[in-house]
């Protein structure tokens, strides 16, 4: 009975995360459009896109790994999400956070990308292969400040459990990590810029250079799966950052406000900058963000 309830709660939680993630994507597209001086697509456009992708009648395949790419990616997004407590203290939205910690979540963030790399490599399109190379290199680069920041956090709170970290920040606004450990926060926010793949770190999917990057060959329901994952993964990343650095959320509205605010950082930077080349962005991540991370670690 317990397991059934738990599974039901998890299902609800995932659906909420998915819907929220896609809605955020829709809102962000709208905001970016307004910056461009456009009206922009409707907020529900990502949902229509997913339906439409799945409504494709024919599909092509490039071998088994080609199918597994989006599946791994989706599993990565899902895995990231289910081991993060979405709402602190809520039964429905605590997910499986009791059984996983930060390291597992970090692994899942990486896992999706690797799976995608395998699948996209199988696709045979040279642009995908180039994009995968760039993506993995860039990810390794921004993973470094992120990891340093996480280690700094772990020493600060003396735990790796996300729930405990959130619990430690409940004493008020001034107890949030962003105020108690600002260096680690900024290092991690730089990494978030890289993770969200907005400019200047969107060389992986740069349409002017390598059309769309890894998903170049994906179509139909496989693409639909990638788009679904985009909803969940965005939610998961933002919720993770909210939990670690911005005091978590006690209910869904607060979660929405906070995650949206965190995402806006990427968006604002994204519309105001051209993109870095892969080598330049790696140098960037290994510069200031890494120094910040090391400093954060030393101070702790």
């Amino acid at each position: 009975m317990y397991i059934a309830t738990k599974a039901f709660y998890l299902f609800v939680s995932i659906i909420v995360a998915l819907v929220w993630g896609l809605t955020v994507n829709g809102i962000v597209r709208k905001i970016v459009a307004r910056v461009h001086g456009r009206i922009g697509p409707p907020v529900w456009q990502p949902f229509i896109d997913i339906i439409k992708s799945n409504a494709k009648r024919s599909m092509i395949a490039h071998g088994v790994m080609f199918y597994f790419g989006p599946v791994f990616r989706f599993a990565g997004g899902l895995g990231t999400y289910v081991f993060i407590p979405a709402v602190f203290g809520s039964v429905v939205f605590e997910n499986l956070s009791f059984s996983g910690d930060l390291l597992l979540v970090m692994y899942f963030i990486f896992f999706g990308q690797l799976g995608m790399a395998l699948g996209a490599g199988e696709g045979g399109h040279p642009a995908s292969a180039i994009a995968v190379g760039r993506g993995l290199a860039q990810m390794t680069a921004f993973e470094l400040p992120f990891a340093l920041s996480i280690i700094s956090l772990a020493t600060q709170y003396n735990t790796l459990s996300i729930t405990d970290i959130v619990a430690a920040q409940q004493a008020g606004v001034m107890s949030w990590t962003v105020f108690t450990n600002p260096l680690a926060t900024f290092a991690a926010l730089f990494a978030l810029l890289g993770m969200n793949m907005h400019s200047p770190f969107d060389i992986v999917i740069a349409p002017q250079e390598i059309p769309l990057g890894p998903p170049t060959e994906y179509q139909g329901s496989l693409l639909g799966m990638l788009h679904t994952n985009r909803g969940i993964f965005v939610s998961a990343k933002l919720i993770l950052f909210m939990n670690l650095y911005f005091g978590g959320a006690l209910n869904l509205p607060i979660l929405m406000v906070k995650t949206f605010a965190i995402y806006m950082l990427s968006v604002v930077v994204g519309v105001a900058f051209p993109r870095f080349r892969a080598d330049q962005s790696i140098r960037f991540f290994l510069g200031v963000p890494t120094v910040l991370g090391i400093l954060a670690l030393l101070i702790q």
């Binding site: 459009a33 456009r38 009206i39 697509p41 409707p42 349409p207 769309l212 994906y218």
Partner: peptide, 15 residues
């Protein structure tokens, strides 16, 4: 702006 009607340019024929 035709993106308000849900149209988008895609760089690859697959999609």
């Amino acid at each position: 702006d035709i993106s308000q009607y849900g149209m988008n340019p895609r760089p690859t024929p697959r999609q």
